[in-house]
């Protein structure tokens, strides 16, 4: 069974309604190759991704830098150009929106950025930063803004002392809370979190992750949680997708993917994670070389160049994301998946 059909079938019967569907999404950028040359190359940052999020899901998107996970997140909020494919929010397309429609999407989908230092305008007070959404969408005026901002700030752990401070007076973790308040004040349905804790220390990370879990319950949110940190992903999400070179190579329930990884890349990824337990034997598979660039990638399986179990067919034919194994939700794009 292919993933698309699976998604479509699910819409009809399953428990929670589908909130977001990404269908065959391609995001290409063209870049100039070399200076002087007018020749352009195509970066296929996202190269045919399908996924669907049910209401209340925390969908973890893992992968290494350059795999397209950030671009995917940005495409959903309209910051990356969609070359081909569809993004549906509650069944309505949100690709290429402008004007009032873009405004409406902004109220439903919000993005939290990775770098807490560059995501807050350095010349604005917290009140201005968090209240900007209210102002933009005409939801409040004058002191109402300050009051609503304060209420939201209190929810993420600040008080009135912090209301008129500038961003430079805050630490990384505090800044991430401010970003969160800024996103939440519009009461979105879907929050895209792009590596929200990777710039933070572990003890601060724990506070933020807990806060995110609480807030998800409280505001009835759906998360698309993008991270390279497998530990964080495992803790936060109920379903995950593994990306490699613009492709979704494996997706399924978190426990299935972590306990029975089927794709060789997922297996390598899981074995690469250093364990804090000195007694855990490290039986890691070392990959040869660096990830290839997404500039004009070769045909066939994206992982073929580095795969330890590569076969001739892998270099010719790209595998489709199809169902393998026992769990109904577990899909892998591999010709020779590891199924036990």
């Amino acid at each position: 069974m292919r993933y698309n059909n699976h998604v479509n079938r699910k819409t009809n019967q399953s428990h929670n309604p589908i909130l977001l569907t990404v269908e065959d999404l391609h995001v290409y950028f063209s870049i100039r190759e070399g200076w002087l040359s007018r020749q352009r190359a195509t970066v296929k940052a996202v190269n045919g991704v399908n996924l669907s999020l049910q209401q209340g899901d925390v969908f973890g998107l893992v992968g290494e830098s350059g795999c397209g996970k950030t671009t995917l997140g940005r495409a959903i909020v309209g910051l990356s150009p969609v070359s081909h494919g569809q993004i549906l929010l509650k069944g309505r397309s949100i690709v290429g929106l402008t004007g009032q429609d873009a405004h409406e999407r902004a109220r439903q989908v919000q993005l939290i950025f990775q770098d807490p230092y560059s995501s807050l305008h350095p010349r604005k007070t917290v009140c201005d930063l968090v209240g900007v959404g209210l102002k933009l969408h005409g939801l409040a005026n004058g002191y109402e803004i300050d009051e609503q901002v304060l209420a939201m700030l209190k929810r993420v752990g600040f008080n009135i002392d912090h209301l008129y401070r500038y961003a430079h007076e805050f630490s990384g973790g505090q800044r991430q809370r401010i970003s969160l308040a800024r996103a939440l004040i519009l009461r979105p349905k879907l929050l895209i979190l792009d590596e929200p804790t990777s710039a933070l220390d572990v003890s601060v990370q724990a506070q933020i992750l807990n806060l995110l879990k609480e807030i998800r319950q409280e505001f009835n949110l759906t998360f698309l949680f993008i991270s390279h940190d497998l530990g964080v992903i495992r803790y936060m999400s109920n379903r995950i997708g593994v990306m490699y070179l613009g492709h979704l190579v494996e997706t399924g329930a978190t426990s299935d993917v972590f306990e029975h990884p089927q794709h060789p890349y997922t297996q390598v990824l899981l074995s690469s994670l250093p364990s804090i337990d000195p007694d855990t034997p490290s039986n890691r598979t070392l990959l040869e070389g660096d990830p290839p660039t997404p500039i004009d990638p070769p045909p066939g399986c994206p992982f073929a160049q580095r795969c330890p179990g590569v076969k001739p067919i892998c270099r010719e034919q790209a595998p489709e994301l199809i169902h393998h194994g026992n769990s109904p939700d577990h899909f892998t794009a591999c010709h020779f998946p590891h199924v036990d």
């Binding site: 109220r107 950025f113 995501s119 900007v132 959404g133 933009l136 969408h137 519009l186």
Partner: peptide, 17 residues
Amino acid sequence: DNDYIQVIRSMGASNLR
């Protein structure tokens, strides 16, 4: 291209703003 400009864009702010 700073994130804080992207944030405000993703919130639906106009170019002029």
